[in-house]
């Protein structure tokens, strides 16, 4: 699905990713853990195509394509989805219109007509139920005045609507109470299948009780320093991140 090799990226003069390697196959869930400031969110932004980061070395192959050659919108249409750590509030654009535009731009790029209204509404209804969002949210301005939990649920809702091949969840669990965490995880678990993959970035082992990863990677200073199974998360929880620093 995605193969990241020796990725180096910087913002301004500061190098953040320093030789990052990761391969994710179809059907897999990978968790990336690590202390603050090690480059986890930078990794997510670089994959999604945020252009304030400069990739100086390395490659990302996604589904046989050179991802780094693609614009952010092309990446999204090709099946990359980033659930934002801090979803943006956009007054004046409703969630419904946002999703309609996103789905139809993708269809346009595939040479398809816009999705028929009935089909769109049915999909909306189904996915709203999945993340337990009330339909009143759909006509409201995107994320405006939403609580932290509502914003994160909206991210999972968008993911469900767009059915990406690869979804990156950037600290989707931070700031969630236990109910929201359950709803978000439940959404992810229902969406996972043998054809898609997830990269779950988190600080806390707690999320991985709900979303069970196939691999856990520990990231430090811009690259992966340790990889293991789900039990690695428990070990980290117990020993803390200082233990990781000693591994370097």
């Amino acid at each position: 699905m995605i193969n990241i090799k020796n990725l180096h990226a910087r913002i301004g003069e500061r190098e953040i990713l320093k030789g990052f390697n990761l391969e994710v196959k179809k059907g897999e869930i990978h968790a990336i853990m690590g202390p603050n400031g090690t480059g986890k969110s930078t990794l997510a932004s670089v994959i999604a195509g945020k252009n304030q980061y400069e990739v100086t070395e390395g490659s990302i192959e996604f589904d046989g394509q050179d991802l780094l050659e693609m614009e952010a919108d092309e990446r999204a249409r090709a099946g990359v989805f980033l659930a934002f750590q801090y979803p943006i509030e956009i007054p004046g654009v409703s969630t419904t219109n946002f999703m309609k535009a996103a789905i139809n731009e993708k269809r346009k790029s595939q040479g398809l007509e816009p999705m028929p209204a009935k089909e769109f509404l049915e999909r909306m209804k189904e996915k709203m139920a999945l993340v337990e969002i009330d339909k009143a949210f759909m006509s409201r301005s995107l994320n405006e005045g939403f609580s932290g939990g509502e914003k994160k649920r909206n991210e999972i809702f968008q993911m469900a609507m767009l059915e990406p091949k690869l979804a990156i969840l950037d600290e989707t669990d931070s700031g969630l109470d236990i109910d929201a965490l359950r709803i978000v995880s439940n959404g992810v678990n229902k969406l996972r299948n043998s054809e898609n993959a997830f990269i779950v970035i988190t600080h806390y082992q707690r999320l991985l009780d709900y979303i069970v990863p196939d691999f856990v990677h520990v990231m430090y200073d811009g690259r992966i320093v340790k990889t293991g199974g789900k039990e690695l998360a428990l070990e980290l929880e117990e020993k803390g991140y200082d233990w990781v620093k000693e591994l370097v």
Binding site: E71, I90, G92
Partner: peptide, 28 residues
């Protein structure tokens, strides 16, 4: 720019995203 990237990251082209944000501005 952050709002623009949020729309683009969902597969909306830059030109459409700009228009959507401009219309949203006038929506008030």
């Amino acid at each position: 720019e952050n709002a623009l990237f949020y729309l683009i990251a969902r597969g909306i082209s830059k030109a459409t995203a700009k228009s959507m944000l401009t219309v949203a501005f006038a929506n008030e």
